[in-house]
Design a protein around this nucleic acid. Structure first.
Length: 265
DNA sequence: CTATTTGTTTATCC
DNA sequence: AGGATAAACAAATA
């Protein structure tokens, strides 16, 4: 579920707790979402710390408590964040519950547990957060940077290349399909085969689709326009909003891909 | 019972 | 060495 804009939406779910202090932590260290981290430290050290700040970057979120407590949340395929009101009880897949001073709790849930919780107690940003690559909507995401990456991955399908987080943070399966569709490029095309014009279009589409998705989904999960591929792509029998022809769904780069044979070249 | 899933990591082959 | 591809992870849903 969660790509760039959905992740921003889920980051906002904990916003009402900014300024509140952690009074208790509930977690089961055996759960896969805690792989590789010191859950004992998380349990103990974050208590008493105030939620100061949060930020989403691509599919990663970072919540800062106090001056040195950094909580990373990756939603994987089925992760969600929400606030539990006072008196409400956690459910089966609620793996992390942070009780806050106002009696509400911050909850991270994830049935499939492909998601992940990170935690560091460090003076500066921990490596896992500091190493984030230029956001698509930042000035550092340049055409040259994108183009060089297309060359390096010249022999991979463009669909697979767009899913690579090191260069396209936040782009997931639906965004990659939407981008290929919007620039009329078939998702199987090797990245190196894109023409100069197609590369210009790709660069603009990355920015436009990121910006619009954030605007529409990122705040209150509104519906994307029917003029996009998005609302037509999910089930078999969908129709291309540009041509009216039947959309194709097939596996490309290991992921279900939806595209329009009459529209994309 | 089988197939499918909006993601990432690891293994394997080239 | 580095890139490309497939499998593994886990649980719900159709």
């Amino acid at each position: 579920m969660p790509e760039l804009a959905e992740v921003e939406y889920y980051r906002k779910q904990w916003e009402p707790a900014h300024g509140q202090t952690v009074t208790g932590v509930h977690l089961n260290a055996e759960k896969r979402v805690f792989r590789g981290i010191d859950t004992r430290a998380l349990r103990k050290d974050i208590v008493g710390q105030k939620l100061e700040d949060s930020e989403a970057h691509g599919k990663q979120m970072c919540f800062r408590f106090g001056q040195s407590h950094w909580l990373g949340v990756h939603l994987g395929m089925t992760g969600k964040t929400r606030i539990l009101q006072s008196g409400e009880l956690p459910e089966k897949h609620d793996h992390l519950v942070l009780q806050m001073g106002d009696a509400r709790s911050l909850v991270f849930s994830d049935p499939r547990m492909f998601g992940r919780i990170l935690y560091s107690n460090t003076i500066g940003e921990p490596a896992w957060w500091a190493m984030r690559s230029p956001a698509i909507l930042s000035d550092d995401f340049t055409f040259e940077r994108m183009n060089q990456f297309l060359e390096r991955r010249a022999k991979s399908p463009i669909k697979a290349v767009l899913l690579m987080q090191e260069t396209f943070p936040g782009v997931g399966n639906w965004m990659a399909d939407e981008i290929c569709w919007s620039i009329q490029v078939r998702p199987h095309r090797h990245a190196g085969s894109l023409t100069d014009g197609e590369r210009e279009n790709l660069y603009k589409a990355l920015q436009f689709i990121s910006q619009e998705a954030l605007r529409i989904i990122g705040t209150d999960w509104g519906d994307l326009p029917d003029s996009w591929l998005f609302n037509h792509r999910w089930k078999d029998g969908g129709i291309c909003p540009k041509t009216g022809c039947k959309l194709i769904r097939e596996k490309i780069g290991g992921r279900t891909t939806c595209w329009s044979p009459d529209w994309q070249r």
